[in-house]
């Protein structure tokens, strides 16, 4: 059986096509990711973009729409996707996906372009509690991205640069709009760019950490979402949470879509 999970993120759309494999004698069903696909919606509206991303993913996997038993969708724009079988929250999807990659996970930290949240997960991979700040850009990836652009760096370079800094410059503003002016004045004061990069990533990490603290920090911790690609951010988050280790899955941005596909498969039984 094939199922699909779609994550309608604020920045990009992620599609995961999952195949269920029956192994003789194995107590549990096994799954294999057939295809993980990511697309930027560009000018398209949510439903059209989802349609396009889904079709492209199917094509890349050599599948047809009728091969797919169920399509589950998550993310901020999920209600606009008309062809989906069912919608699930980002917390549920992220928790299930993280649990699949790392069964020992108890805390999922999800940092995407416009949202950041901490989710407490039980042994079965169910989200039991969460804290997020969905209506505020502080503590989300787009803030780091905007700041990296101000320094004419990619988000990746920005993260790497921050690792070269050992300075701690505290940022006072809680709001992204106000923090932007703080960064501008740092640039004007000829502060080295690696120190600014560290200050920004520390600020994002401290805000994320504060959210996670509300649900309680329990190991193992898994970081998902696009910001997991930034080595500098992972390092800053480790220090903020005061933990030795943060588990990073492969393709961190697609974990919620994977969680969706898993939930779709499990609910067919």
């Amino acid at each position: 059986m094939i199922t699909a999970g779609i994550d309608m993120g604020s920045r990009s759309i992620k599609v995961v096509l999952l195949e269920e494999i029956k192994v003789e004698g194995a107590p549990q069903l096994q799954y294999a990711v057939k295809k993980a696909y990511m697309m930027l919606p560009g000018e398209l509206d949510a439903d059209e973009a989802a349609e396009k991303a889904y079709n492209e993913a199917l094509q890349a996997a050599g599948l047809k729409r009728e091969d797919v038993a169920a399509v589950y969708v998550t993310g901020a724009g999920r209600s606009q996707v008309k062809f989906a079988t069912e919608g699930v929250t980002e917390m549920t999807a992220g928790a299930r996906g993280a649990n699949y990659m790392f069964p020992e996970v108890r805390t999922v930290v999800d940092v995407g372009a416009e949202e950041g949240r901490g989710v407490k997960v039980d042994a079965a991979g169910k989200a039991v509690d969460f804290a997020g700040n969905e209506k505020c850009a502080a503590g989300a990836g787009s803030f780091a991205e905007a700041m990296s652009r101000a320094l004419q760096m990619t988000l990746k370079e920005f993260g790497e640069a921050s690792l070269r800094s050992d300075k701690t410059i505290p940022m006072n503003a809680q709001c992204t709009v106000f923090a932007e002016s703080e960064v501008v004045s740092l640039i004007h004061a000829s502060t080295p760019s690696q120190d600014i990069a560290k200050a920004v990533l520390d600020a994002v990490a401290s805000r994320i950490c504060a959210m996670v603290r509300r649900v309680g920090i329990e190991e193992s911790i898994v970081l998902i979402g696009g910001m997991a690609h930034s080595a500098g951010f992972v390092d800053a988050l480790k220090k903020a949470l005061d933990v030795e280790k943060i588990l990073l899955p492969e393709m961190p941005e697609s974990i919620s879509a994977l969680g969706c596909a898993l939930l779709a498969a499990e609910r067919q039984h």
Partner: peptide, 18 residues
């Protein structure tokens, strides 16, 4: 719909597009 200025900005652009 957004309270946040940063998000309101992208929402405003989307409205112009629409």
């Amino acid at each position: 719909s957004s309270i946040c200025v940063v998000f309101a900005k992208s929402e405003a652009l989307a409205l112009l597009k629409a």
